[in-house]
Computed example of a mutant assay.
Amino acid sequence: MTWIAALPMYNVTPALDLEWRAWLVDVLRRVKPACRVVEPDEELHGFWRRPNLLLSQACGYPLMHGLHEQVQLIATPRFDAPGCEGAHYSSVLVTRADAQFDTLAACRGARAAYNQDDSNSGMNVFRHAVAPHSRAGMFFSAVLRTGSHLGSLRAVADGRADIAAVDCVTFAFVCDALPELARKVRPIGMTATSPGLPLIASDTVPPATIEALRDALNETLEIQPERAKRLRLQGFSVLSLADYDRIGQLEDEARAAGYTHLA
Rank of each mutant, 00 (worst) to 15 (best):
R255T: 08
K32H: 10
L221T: 12
R96W: 01
A228S: 15
L28H: 05
H128D: 06
I188A: 12
G189Q: 01
S194A: 15
H45G: 15
E43F: 09
C107F: 05
E69C: 02
A136G: 04
S91F: 00
N11C: 14
R30H: 12
D118Q: 11
G189V: 01
R135A: 11
V174I: 15
E219N: 09
R230H: 10
R183P: 00
R30V: 02
P187H: 06
P77C: 14
L16S: 11
R50E: 06
Q72K: 15
N52T: 11
P187M: 07
L153T: 03
C168R: 01
P206E: 06
H65Y: 09
D98K: 09
S91D: 02
D245K: 07
L197P: 14
L16F: 10
A131C: 03
F47R: 07
E180F: 03
C59R: 12
G147F: 12
L153M: 14
L197D: 15
A165C: 09
G83R: 00
T13W: 09
R127D: 00
A192H: 07
D118V: 12
V94L: 11
R227E: 11
A99P: 14
L63W: 12
P33A: 08
D245V: 00
F140V: 01
N115D: 14
P77F: 15
V174W: 08
M1T: 07
D203Y: 03
C107K: 08
